[in-house]
Design a protein around this nucleic acid. Sequence first.
DNA 1: ATCGTCGTTCCATTATGTGGAACTACCTCT
DNA 2: AGAGGTAGTTCCACATAATGGAACGACGAT
Lengths: 270, 270
Amino acid sequence: MKRDEAEISSSAVTENSGTGTLGKALAVLETVVTSDKPLRFSDILAVSGQPRGTLHRQLAHLVEEGLLTQGRDLCYEPGLRLLKFAYRSWSRNQFRAVAAPHLRRLHEETGETVHLGVLRGTEIIYVDKVESRQTVRMESQIGNASPVYCTGLGKAALSVLPPDRLAETLGKLTFHRFTANTHLSTASLKRDLDEARLRGYAFDREEHETEIRCVAAPIHDAGFGLVAGISVTGPAYRVTMEQLEIWAHAVRQAAMAISEDVEIRMGPGR
Amino acid sequence: MKRDEAEISSSAVTENSGTGTLGKALAVLETVVTSDKPLRFSDILAVSGQPRGTLHRQLAHLVEEGLLTQGRDLCYEPGLRLLKFAYRSWSRNQFRAVAAPHLRRLHEETGETVHLGVLRGTEIIYVDKVESRQTVRMESQIGNASPVYCTGLGKAALSVLPPDRLAETLGKLTFHRFTANTHLSTASLKRDLDEARLRGYAFDREEHETEIRCVAAPIHDAGFGLVAGISVTGPAYRVTMEQLEIWAHAVRQAAMAISEDVEIRMGPGR
DNA sequence: ATCGTCGTTCCATTATGTGGAACTACCTCT
DNA sequence: AGAGGTAGTTCCACATAATGGAACGACGAT
């Protein structure tokens, strides 16, 4: 049995101890892929904290496997194979398929953008989206990851986490000020979560982006023991806090409907 | 030195020997992700050819890393982390960004669906797409992979491959009859490629899907030493072979324009 | 010409993954 | 119920494959 592994929440780098080689390779891959600009060998070296030789071989392997590409300028970039994996993982996502009609309905009711996101570690990963203006290409949000502490979806998801998992997650957070309203401490975040838990839904009061507000409701067991959420998002000039309060009910309804459908379609229990 | 390994182009070139652990893990991941239905442990065991213990640990690692998920029915499915990787790899794809305006222009000229694809092994991976009806969500084609031998893009890409790489690729092919027109031997495929090479563009004469035709032109060095292609695709009732011939010029133009832009924007020469 | 930086290669050491076999849980058949 | 299967999981001696320090080669700046 994994003994104290679950215990360690705050300190330690974690992440790589359990999965050995694979974990380290993926850590490297992730730094390259999630970086905003192309990285050179040394850039990665500085972050990874691994010896030169080791890192070099890891990168070589990643390139050989098609997960990374190396251009003529020696910069590493995400490779094509990732795309292939991605397409499959999205199109075959059961949860998304089950939730889709509810997203659409919620969009029709509100007229604003609807998001479906899943909690993963300290991030919310956007799994689906319905938008008024159908510019919904992959470049939208799908697959994108945002911090939990400054998004409606993130806070909704956190609000239904069992205390131990919540504590663990909170411990791993590092705050970054996106706007004037962004939570910057676990203390203030916790208060917000308590409110959200009572209400059954969470707000984003321009905490991630100015002029963007959102109301989100948690989806408890989204199959596979995942915690997810659904949200309605809109520009502040059009979407007041009062408006969000009004929509909150519908959002909660949708979230519960999805939970039920998941229960039915993906088998009970667990 | 590995003597005859390099010689044998047709069978088993690398794939798993070079990248050690990582390669094996990815092979497992790929079988799960590219499968059309959820796989159980034994299903994977049968395909992977690895001993039970080994495979079990590999899967455990993949799950722990979030690349796979295991449902209550013990079926393995693509995990969320893949989505995250995917989003980044697509949105940061230089080549796609450079080509995008040309795709759009070609679409305006023809009114039909335009695809951008990159050659990877024996597959074409769709990197971008412009469609009339803007239902272009990720579920479209992006990230999807199709065999080279039955797609316009595939044949266009093959037609500009240097002889050795072409031979290598052809050797790795296994044919599958998609329609009555699908190439089923390297011989007939080669003849087709020879014609395509002379013309500068390739056709798909309902070889992958009945009632779907396409004309495609190769893009030689799409940065990173990649070989790619651009194509116009449409339903047979609307798009005759004569029509394709007419569009062929525009498609070639677009392909060459992209090549040039890549040259400029991504630095010269390799 | 000299130093410093950056990417790449090498190789003895050892941590890590390997895989055969044993174990458990859960079905199905009689 | 009991016997026989099948499918998933765990264990551990062994060997492979990753490690990382150090040396090398290639540029570019001083």
